[in-house]
Nucleic acid binder design. Structure first.
Lengths: 85, 85
DNA sequence: ATTAATTTGTTCGTATGTATC
DNA sequence: TGATACATACGAACAAATTAA
């Protein structure tokens, strides 16, 4: 089963930003490493307990920040320069 | 050719649930028998005129209900105890 | 033994409608 | 009103497992 990760639906920060921040923290921490895949959208849906759209919104933030890149049909990966952010 | 089965896209029940209910009815009726294969996803797509994802959602419902089980690469089969449901 | 065909599994892209805040 | 979230659906591509030729 997926490791549950907590987000607060009533926090001022919307869930998709909380998730983006959490994933960014995992990258900064080195839990998610450059070149390695981020959990799939399906897995993130299960881990965070949100809809797929919400996960996708979070990943869009990370993409915009250059922290990850997505390959259609493959997955989303941590960018090589992500650690220097 | 595949026997067309009617789905009402404007009904309150979403198509994937209508399909699940229809297949469950076929099982209850004995049209689909324990141990025997359910039509392949490809066939169900043609029969119901929906996308593969939608067929797979319907099959997920039946699996969750224990009415069928799926063997990767082989197919989906009616569970032995399906009749007692 | 190899190859091709079939079938299910996985993953992302996109769109629509509804509901909530 | 606008941003956000959820549910659902269709599409496309490729991988993996199984079976047939």
């Amino acid at each position: 089963m997926a490791t549950p990760r907590q987000i607060d639906p009533r926090a001022p920060e919307p869930p998709y930003r909380q998730i983006a921040a959490d994933l960014a923290a995992q990258i900064a921490r080195g839990d998610l490493r450059p070149g390695r895949p981020v959990p799939s959208e399906k897995e993130l849906v299960e881990e965070y307990g949100v809809a797929r759209n919400t996960v996708r919104s979070a990943l869009s933030v990370l993409r915009a920040d250059g922290l990850v890149y997505t390959v259609p049909g493959r997955g989303t990966y941590v960018s090589d320069a992500a650690s220097d952010s």
